[in-house]
């Protein structure tokens, strides 16, 4: 068994994983400290028509948007929304997907099969199609985006855990535990779950990146947080009508999305190498 310290050391030793980790730490820092770092924290929600659509300058690092708000400050505050959506949605998907995967993988009977088929239904169309349908139905808000994303992402965890548990069931240490009469819930929680933890962690990291992308697409399509909120996807869609003149207003939020998703993907890749060399590098987690 490798210790957490070994894993951390190995991660930091891999330049791209270390970069990913750095980006995510920076994201968290920015989200927490947004009011302190922001150069114009007051101008995130207020209108400031005199300074409309100004190009990047010393005062406005990334320029201003159509309301005259400082884009740099908005992006910092947007990090809070992004992080909240990613953590809550993926967390909820974990809560739903992992137990169902454990049950369906452990019970080889009709119940397991039925649960698996239910998760298949959600995978029968691309995630964004269902997510768009759900968030449109429920109305544009951050909560509804989170709901739509978690409802559509959990089957990925179910599939993953199911496959791992199936493979584990016939391992000697599990069969020995069964033979010794250890209660099922103890076997599953104390032996099976820890063994499938590595792929779950990897998938979580990659899932965060993917979820941020989908959430920003929903925001872009007008299905995310309602207007004054500095949601990155929405900022890009609002910048659209001022292209090509106010190019900066579309550039910065896109780069922010790119950077953050890249961070989660790099970290996921690195974790995969360190934790689970069996999984092939190449699965983008969709």
């Amino acid at each position: 068994m490798r210790t957490a310290r070994d894993i951390a050391l190995k991660l930091i030793g891999d330049p791209s994983a270390a970069l990913g980790l750095l980006i995510i730490v920076a994201l968290v820092a920015v989200a927490v400290l947004a009011p302190l770092i922001a150069t114009h924290p007051e101008a995130v929600w207020d209108m400031n028509p005199r300074d409309r659509l100004l190009p990047p300058s010393e005062t406005y690092l990334f320029g201003t948007d159509r309301m005259g708000a400082d884009i740099f400050s908005r992006i910092l505050f947007g990090a809070r929304i992004t992080l909240t959506i990613a953590i809550v949605a993926v967390g909820a998907a974990l809560m739903i997907g992992v137990p169902i995967g454990l049950i369906s993988g452990w019970c080889g009977n009709w119940l397991g099969e039925a649960l698996l088929r239910v998760s298949d239904i959600f995978l029968a169309v691309p995630q964004i199609v269902l997510a768009i349908a759900i968030s449109q139905t429920l109305g544009p808000s951050i909560e509804n985006v989170i709901l739509a994303l978690s409802v559509t992402y959990w089957p990925w965890f179910t599939r993953l855990v199911h496959a791992e548990v199936r493979a584990l069931r016939h391992e000697t240490f599990i069969e020995a535990a069964i033979a010794l009469g250890v209660p099922t819930w103890r076997i599953v929680l104390l032996h099976v779950l820890p063994s499938v933890l590595s792929p779950i962690i990897v998938r979580t990291s990659i899932g965060m990146g993917f979820t941020i992308l989908t959430a920003s697409a929903l925001g872009f399509l007008g299905l995310g947080a309602p207007p004054p909120a500095p949601e990155w996807g929405r900022m890009i869609s609002e910048a659209r009508e001022f292209l090509p003149e106010a190019w900066w207003s579309a550039l910065a939020p896109g780069l922010a999305i790119f950077l953050v998703v890249m961070g989660f993907n790099l970290l996921g890749d690195g974790l995969r190498d360190v934790l689970d060399p069996r999984i092939r590098r190449g699965n983008p987690g969709r």
Binding site: P253, G254, F258, L259, M262
Partner: peptide, 17 residues
């Protein structure tokens, strides 16, 4: 990895731009 991290709508806008 970068290719998988780009928001497609943003990439579309940048290419259009």
């Amino acid at each position: 990895v970068a290719g998988l991290a780009l928001a497609s709508f943003w990439l579309a806008l940048m290419l259009q731009l």
